[in-house]
Structure formats: structure tokens, C-alpha cells
Design a binder for these strands. Structure first.
Lengths: 268, 268
DNA sequence: TGATTTCAAACATCATTCGTGTTCGTTAGA
DNA sequence: TCTAACGAACACGAATGATGTTTGAAATCA
């Protein structure tokens, strides 16, 4: 919220790990829209040279934009926050949601796994389970394709969208049309009883729609921040969902409204 | 060949890096079919504990099989050598072949990239080029899917075969049927003028066949050891190939025979 | 069963790598 | 032109990884 209060928490904290510092820098730049190298050096207690290196790293990761003298946020009104940035948000809630989603899936099932950070956490859990998984993002494919784990991997086709690695396009749609799944685990950018399920990207929305159509059961994994929000691309009405898993930050009215239209809501 | 000559090269060489040692262990076990921990410790000058750790590592990588007291080769007559093992062979030749193959490809082309170690080297080069690439193995997808590089990635569907990560099955075939490529870079297990192109695995052969059918031009990347050999699964006649890139270890008679049936052969 | 070998966990040691800060010459903007 | 910002180069300390030794458990063989 307030940059000053953040500062007072951490000034003169010499035992800050580089990961902590990166997080703090990212948060500061995001909250205030931008920061100078000097400010960040003072804020974190690190040298300016270290801050410059941090900013280069974070810029490479797509967390922020490097400008002369400091860094600027990548967030613009109405645009989807970059993947690398969202991945840091609400990690705990996402993990809990993912655990609950995984608990809904029985051994032997075939599972369609949407793109997005929450679904990536689901992949991390399903990797150790005896299930067949088709992931719709490069990140999840990388995770499941590496040696350990018991899950059977099924690859969809498609063109990966930059950064996020979500698979879209005719090849992805064709892969989905050719298969049927026991469960589709879907993520979204917005969900409300009024506007239904929405995504930031048209291609993404088309893939989600096809995924939902190819599954016997649809589980939506969405942290509380997604509820009541509406993004640009419409996927379908909330009645398409069989189960919604969200966390305690979800607005109670929205949950009630969704339950009223027939969704089974689980709050973790 | 001869274990003793190998030993005399390296005994009492204390400045051996762990990678060197791993290579020597792998080679020794492969050449002699197996070795004890004691032998390997004496051979490399490392302690038995270190050898055990090495063997565990190599076993996890699929290079050899751990047995009580030592390790055994995974190579059995008639079986395809494991991917992790082949990947260490003739790295230099594969690199040179890959460079030549990449030189045949112009910017802007769409390229189909087969599975296999040589094609993986091609992927490493194409990553920096302005081309559209559809790789048929998880390894290459991982390589191309990571952030750097200019190449456009197109994902095929399919089921990855264990270890090697080659994509096969109806989804892979459907992805290929839906597209046309400027160039298909194909690997193989055997090639001869008489028996044509062959692979170890039926599913693999079907994918190669579909890939060849979907490309305007077919480039085969095969080190010299593949020429004159025949594997179980038939892909098609050598006349399907437009260009063959191989290395100087290729048998001259086989090269002549292939040129006689119309192939354009490049030796690097 | 008992003896012997093999194994793996735990700890110590050493080399290497990584992160960081400082300095200094260069570069980009005002 | 002048000044702040930058990045390359070096130095230093901490963290990490590789290795060897010891020790007790487990597996194999007689």
C-alpha cells in the first residue's frame, strides 16, 4: 500500500537474502509504479551496483522494466499482469487451492490441466500421482516431462504464447477435440455469476472453451482475487463449472451468487 | 576395446574432473559389460564411496545399471542403446553435422525437427535463428521453450516415449497431417541404399513417415555409424531424402550406393 | 547362523561458485 | 559540456558442491 511503511520495516536489515530483496524490489516497483536505483539501495541496504544487477535480472524475468536510473512497473491499466509477476502473488493460497483440486482427482483419471500459476501448482502435485495429464502450458510440460514422478504425460499441440507458455491456436483446439477427459482443471482471469468465466486473451478463451467441452467434469481453480472480476474474453457461463475451488479472500456475496446458479464451491 | 590400455592412460591421474571420471566409468562399463566398485576406484584413483555416488548418478541418468558391488551395461544385443548413453557418443561429429544441417536452412523457413541426439544439436543452433520450429521430442521442446533465442516454437501433440521423449501416437500424426513444412530434419537408426530408412520403434517410424510426407524438403542427419545399418521398423526408401548430412566415418561404398539412388550427400 | 562384503548416512575438509561491494573508465542525457 | 548512471574488472566472504573417512546397518555367501 504505502511505501513508507514498507521502508520502515526493512531499512537496515543486513540479513536479507537475495530472493527477499528481489521480492521487495518487485513489490516496491509495482506499488509505486517505479523506483530509482538509489531509492532501492537505501530501501534494501544493498549497494547500487547490486540493485542494478537485481534490476537486470528482474527485467530479464519480465517482472519489471529497466529504465535509466531505476526501474518501472510493467503493469498498465486493463492489461494482464505479466506471468512472472503474478507467479509471486498469493503463493500460499495457490498451493492450498492446488492441494484441494488434486484431492478431487482419483488415481487413474485423465486430467486436462489449463495454463496459469495455480494450475502449475496442481501439476506439481499430480506429478507424483498415477494419472494421465495433458497440460496446456509449457511450464507444466517442463515440470511433468522431467524424469521423476509417476504421472503419464500427454502432449497437446499448439503455439505457445510468449512468457506464459500457454498453448493456443488450431493445433491446441484440434488436440482437445480429439480427446475426452475425466476432469478438466481450469484457471481463469475473472469469474462472476453475472458475466461467467472470462480470460484476458481471445485465443486462451477459445482453448478453455474447448477444454471444458472435452471434459466430463470441470474444476475451476481460482484464488479469491478472481471472483467478481470480469476480463475481456468470454469463455462461458458459470454453470459450465461443476466445482469451484477458491480461498478465503473470496467475496462472500460472489460465492453466494455462484452457489445460487448451481456451482459447488469449496473454500480452503 | 581393451580395458588394460584404457587403464594405463589414466591410473594415478589425480586431477581428473568428475565429468571426466563419469565418462571414463561409463566407457569402461560399456566396453567390458560391467565393472566392480573396486576396479573403478582403482581405475580412476577416486575412493570407493565416490565411485558409488557416481554409479548412482549414472544409473539415475540411465547410462548404466547399478548392481550390488558394481555396475553393468544396459546394452543388450539388438536393443537400441539408451538415449542417455548415445548422447555421449560422437558429440563432435553430431555438432558438425548439426551445423551443416542448420546451414541448409534459410531464415523464415518452417522446420520440422525429429527426435534424437543429432537433431537436438540442430535445435541448439536453430534457437538463435529466425525460423519456425516444430520439434518432435521433449528435449528439444524444453530447449526451445526456454526464454532466450529468436526461433518461433510450434508444439506438436503426442505421447512422449520414456527417456528419449520422442513424441508419437495419433496426436503426433494428426499434428503433422495438419501442417506443411519447408524442411524436415530427420534422424534415423539405420540407412542403407538397399533397405532405405529404418527406426528401432514402430511408432517412431510412423511419425517419421508422416513428417517426411508433410515437408517440401527432407534432410537426414545421420552420423557415419548409421549408414549401412538396418533397424527393425521401416520408414521408407532412401529416395525420399533430398539431402543426407553425415560425417567422415561413413562407409564410402554406402555413400556411393546412396548417391547412385539419387541422394545428395554432404560429408562434414 | 555367522562371517564378510557392500552399502549408505553423517561428518569433516577442500575447492569452486556465487553474491556482493569497490573502483574506475565509459556512456548517455541534461 | 557536464554530471549522473552504467558496466566491466577485481577482491572478498559466504554458500555450495565434491570428496574422503568413519561407522553402523543391510545384504550376500559359506
Amino acid at each position: 500500500m504505502n511505501t513508507l511503511s514498507v521502508r520502515s520495516d526493512v531499512v537496515f536489515n543486513p540479513s536479507m537474502s537475495n530472493t527477499d530483496r528481489h521480492g521487495l524490489i518487485a513489490k516496491t516497483v509495482r506499488d509505486s509504479g517505479g523506483a530509482t536505483v538509489q531509492e532501492l539501495a537505501e530501501l534494501t541496504g544493498a549497494s547500487e551496483m547490486t540493485i542494478r544487477r537485481d534490476l537486470d535480472t528482474l527485467a530479464t524475468q519480465g517482472v519489471l522494466e529497466r529504465v535509466r536510473g531505476g526501474a518501472r512497473t510493467l503493469l498498465l491499466r486493463g492489461e494482464e499482469p505479466p506471468f512472472a509477476l503474478r507467479a509471486q502473488d498469493a503463493v500460499d493460497a495457490k498451493r492450498r487451492i492446488a492441494a484441494e483440486v488434486a484431492a478431487l482427482i482419483a488415481d487413474g483419471e485423465s486430467v486436462l490441466l489449463d495454463s496459469g500459476t495455480t494450475c502449475l501448482e496442481v501439476a506439481r502435485i499430480l506429478r507424483e500421482r498415477h494419472v494421465t495429464v495433458m497440460p496446456l502450458s509449457l511450464q507444466a510440460i517442463r515440470l511433468l516431462g522431467e524424469t521423476p514422478g509417476h504421472a503419464d504425460l500427454l502432449m497437446p499441440g499448439g503455439r505457445p504464447r510468449a512468457a506464459e507458455g500457454a498453448l493456443t491456436g488450431p493445433l491446441a483446439l484440434a488436440s482437445l477435440a480429439a480427446l475426452r477427459f475425466d476432469t478438466a482443471v481450469i484457471g481463469c482471469c475473472g469469474l462472476s455469476a453475472a458475466d461467467g468465466l472470462t480470460a484476458y486473451d481471445l485465443d486462451d478463451a477459445a482453448v478453455k472453451k474447448a477444454g471444458i467441452a472435452s471434459a466430463r467434469r470441470v474444476v475451476l481453480a481460482a484464488d479469491g482475487g478472481k471472483l467478481g472480476r470480469t476480463a475481456h474474453a468470454h469463455v462461458g457461463p458459470a454453470t459450465l463449472l461443476h466445482t469451484l475451488v477458491t480461498d478465503t479472500t473470496a467475496s462472500a456475496e460472489e460465492v453466494d451468487a455462484l452457489e445460487a446458479v448451481g456451482s459447488n464451491v469449496k473454500i480452503v
